[in-house]
Design a protein around this nucleic acid. Structure first.
Lengths: 208, 208, 208, 208
DNA sequence: CATGAATGAGGTTTCATTCAT
DNA sequence: AATGAATGAAACCTCATTCAT
């Protein structure tokens, strides 16, 4: 039994190593132009070994967001702890989102430019992991509506789409521009714009 | 001379046929999984013929947005004609943007899910065509600031990014969801949110 | 049109060259151990070229008996011409069968040791070609029964099985023994045994 | 010593389990398409374990007929016991041959469609086991010649070839037809044909 | 003795591109 | 200008075998 545990943990570690290598390789080239041989080399294992951990190249590819989203959610949880008020939580979420991808630029590239767009991504189990934290966002929005600080005349799904859409776009644009500027640079401005768009106005006349 | 013109127009038509076939093929699969042979078949020409009009597969790929963006800009111009006021122009732009991609779903897929993300896209001449209409947007924003209806405490590039980002995201999301709903469905709501975000408030206290 | 014909005939010739090369290669090793690269080399074409003529390795494999059985039937027809009497025809058939495989030892190996046994062979169109000449055999047997020289108390399919079974086995055994003796060596003896087994006896009481 | 015996028998049992699993796996796919992993799984052992009982995959493969032929010969012996006369023995042999393969269809497939045809089979020790019972057949034929009931104007090896050839072909055909009919169905008819072919005729009364 | 993770060589197949016709 | 046959490089994946535990 000890033996089994030992083997298991070794397998888990090696699995992580392969995924990390895959992120690096997939982020530089793209799915099709990345080769198993490159990944194997970077992971320091034989090509065949990869097929003991993943069914095929696509399976390895889709395993990446499963792992990274777990990490994202886990740490997001910590960062939200102790924050009161939906608006403050949203501000923190915006900051953390940009912060996370700033610090995981390779994963950012893989996720935003490759995975999200992949034909089978929505169908894959990977997509399930996403639901997890997008639901978290939805909860915060509902909370804000209850508090009376977030407008309830707009569909909450549209509000969430607004929020995530802008953030995704910011990361994507940053990547396409070659990561030459600081992703957190306009954090406050964007935060301000988003919150303004989502929040209730005392003076609605200003809107057409 | 007439002969030459005739020849020219025949060449141009065949070129268009190939581009149209390419859009259809690239939109269904993706760049790597689309084959020259498929495109040739759909265009009704031999494989070799394609290489008389385009340097290689990538060149054909990047020729698509050049053509389609011309079309987009040309028609956008018409739709903006006669509209007064930056806010109204922005509203119209939002509508037209969604309207255009609703009616060109295959090009939408190719552009949003493949081209935009392509490594060499930014470097390619295709990107130049884009500048054309993103600059148009910038002009409208500046106009709005002069009119005093668009806030000038935020960088105009950030404002443009906000606008284009949300629109891109709407189209992308629509595509990823399988085009099952009407892209123009939430046009008014989104319009309202964007305009609100960009516009000056009489009562700025409400923010943050 | 001339151009097309010319191209067509060139394609047919190249197809034959590939099939001939395939027979030689498949006969030496077996299906799985033969490589497309070996066949291409022997045929004097590039590997990719083979895939312009055959869907895949298995398709090439199953195309062999289709071609060779045509050849077998065509020549068998000539050899049977002018022969009177079912027994004489059967004798000639036996001789020709052994003669054909003696002169096509490589095809013999491929057919008897690989193809006949192949899982998908029966389902493949190749099997259809076989029907052609096994039906011919059946006709001769029926003819013999009408003439009153072949017993009609045994199912004709069993009689055919007897005939083809022994011949197949003779060829197979010859191959397994390394083709060290003359396949036609025992032709007369076998002929005699088979004909005796199939023919009516003057005194039929002896049989069941 | 008891300990040793115990160990020995445990080893022998495990060996048998592996061989049985191998028969099942090899019969379904073929040699090349069967994997050690499949066999190990079916046998309930680890892959590595197989290599403690057999040198390699081919060695395991060729061990199958060695074991099964022992079984065949052992039981054939019993079935022939007490039967008088070469013709009766041959009839019994024919019946038992078909009976055995009817009841061992998986082994039949492996032997007839894979092993018999295998390039190295003749050279392998497996082939030696075969000699054992083919010699038995030869003895019966000689016995019949001495009795004066089997023709002696034909080479005894040709006679044996006739006998085994037809039987092999019957089994093979049955397998290729998907075992959809009863292998013993035409036993009597074939028996009759074979015996007639082998026997002296001038005086037909002598038969049965 | 038993295990099963690691290996890595090797083959099939695809497809962009070329070039003779 | 148009064709389409030929090319051949390159990559995924399998699996028998080994060996440390």
């Amino acid at each position: 039994m000890f033996n089994t545990n030992h083997r298991m943990s070794k397998k888990i570690i090696k699995r992580q190593m392969i995924i990390q290598a895959a992120i690096e390789v997939f982020s530089r080239n793209n799915f099709q132009n990345s080769t198993i041989s490159q990944i194997a080399q970077k992971a320091g294992v034989a090509e065949g070994t990869i097929y003991q951990y993943f069914k095929n190249k696509e399976d390895l590819f889709f395993s990446i967001p499963v792992e990274k989203t777990k990490e994202f959610s886990r740490e997001l949880e910590l960062h939200l702890q102790g924050i009161k008020g939906a608006v403050n939580k949203i501000s923190k979420f915006i900051w953390y989102y940009l912060y996370f991808f700033k610090n995981n630029p390779e994963y950012a590239r893989t996720l935003m430019l490759e995975l999200r767009v992949s034909k089978n991504f929505a169908k894959a189990k990977a997509y399930q992991s996403f639901r997890q934290f997008t639901n978290q966002v939805l909860e915060i929005i509902k909370e804000g509506q209850k508090e009376g600080v977030i407008r309830d005349d707009v569909n909450i799904y549209v509000l969430r789409q607004l929020l995530l859409g802008i953030l995704e776009h910011m990361v994507t644009r940053w990547l396409l521009k070659g990561e030459k500027y600081d992703l957190l640079e306009h954090c406050d401005e964007v935060n301000c714009l988003i919150v303004r768009g989502m929040s209730l106005t005392t003076n609605p006349h200003e809107l057409r």
